[in-house]
Simulated assay, not measured.
Amino acid sequence: MTRHAAWKPSGTVRTRLTLLYTGLFLVTSTILLTVVNLLLTSALESRVSSITEDFPPFGELPPGAGPAPRAPGAPDRPVRPEVVDAMSGLPGAVLRYQWTVSAIVIAVLTVVSVVAGWWLAGRVLSPLRHITATAHRLSLSNLHERIALAGPRDELTDLADTFDAMLERLERSVDSQRRFIANAAHELRTPLSVQRAAIQIGLDDPLPDRLIPVREKLLTANRRTERLIDSLLLLAQAEHGPGGMEPVTLDPLVRQTVEETAADGVVVTADTRPVVVEGDPVLLGRLLTNLLQNAVRYNRPGGTVHVGLTATGVLTVRNTGPEVPAERIAELFQPFRRLHSRTRTADGAGLGLSIVLSIARAHRADLTARPNPGGGLELTVRFPVHTGAEPGGRRAP
């Protein structure tokens, strides 16, 4: 159950942005009007006080005295006290009027700021509405669609482009998973069909001499199915990630794998240097086994396989054999894909290099492949070297 069934701008980001815009306006306008009113009040009081002090008091001139001196701009005759009192109260009256007008203006502009802030927030968040609607519309059947947000380059277009890149990766992953399931079903169906045919045909004649080849066919198909299931489980484990990472001395493991691999008429040589890498010993052993078995199986009679390991963690496996088209090398790392022009046998399930790629990625290693000029393939795995342990430490089983 999703938390939000549809895009709801009210009560969420749009409301908060509107309140933020309005609050900022109220704070700044209130501070501005307060400062202006206080300065105006101070100026009025100072001006009125200086003028009233220059007015001659009414009725205080001595008899026979001449006219009192007056300040420039002051009246030439005495001013009544009520006039002086009225002028003294002028700043307060102006201030009250100013505060009243300011309050009315702030109230009106607050309403305007709410409306303008709501509209502006909607304009700013409209790309998010488009992104959200597209995300709700997408499913496994229309992963090919993209947001494709137009407009100037900003944070929202960057967000939309990031979603588009994620959708592209997700689409490739789903397509790869669909192909994997289809190929796995096909590979599992083949040995089961052989078993069923052997049982149906071979057991029609229950004579002992007919049961022997039937048994051999069933055992062969059973072993192939078992190897395929083991490979699928190992591929799933490699894609999930190693169970535990520890320093592993790789060079003795390489030599051990070379000694245990059946050469099948192929000359295998090794040139290794001491190096320690961080990884899962079991998965690293399977990576080396698959690389060597692949190099031996997909070779020519009397061919060679050379295994090299440098002190910088670069593992190279190079074999002879038929030429491999450079444009088809990427297919070798896809599950259940075989290049029949290279194969000597059909015993493999097409998962060897897929498992190698998954194990390499789980160990943050780079796996590359290139065809040899005279035929065959060169696979290179670049492991990050473990700097916290000296060569000759923990050895992988």
Rank of each mutant, 00 (worst) to 15 (best):
F55K: 02
V36W: 10
L170P: 06
L284I: 08
G23E: 11
P206F: 05
P322D: 12
R47H: 13
G73H: 03
E60C: 04
L357M: 09
A135L: 15
H144N: 11
V35A: 11
P127F: 02
D280S: 10
P391I: 06
R395K: 09
L353S: 04
L250Y: 03
A365Y: 01
V174G: 03
G303H: 01
L24Y: 08
G265Q: 07
G89A: 11
A197F: 12
H386V: 06
T34W: 13
R178Y: 04
A263P: 14
T22K: 00
H340L: 15
E390F: 13
R47Q: 15
W99K: 06
A121I: 03
G375S: 03
V48M: 11
L332Q: 14
T18I: 02
P206H: 04
V112N: 03
V214Y: 01
A365G: 01
G393W: 02
R337G: 02
E168K: 09
A86F: 12
I106S: 07
T15K: 01
L283P: 03
R129V: 07
R370E: 14
Y97L: 14
A165L: 13
R215N: 09
R77G: 10
V13E: 11
E239S: 15
P57H: 07
W99A: 06
G64L: 13
G321K: 00
D85M: 06
E82T: 04
A236V: 09
D85I: 02
L203V: 05
V35E: 08
H240D: 14
N142Q: 09
T15V: 02
G388S: 15
D161S: 14
V276P: 00
A182F: 08
L61A: 12
R169M: 09
S176C: 03
T289L: 09
V356T: 10
R395I: 05
A369D: 00
V174C: 07
G23F: 05
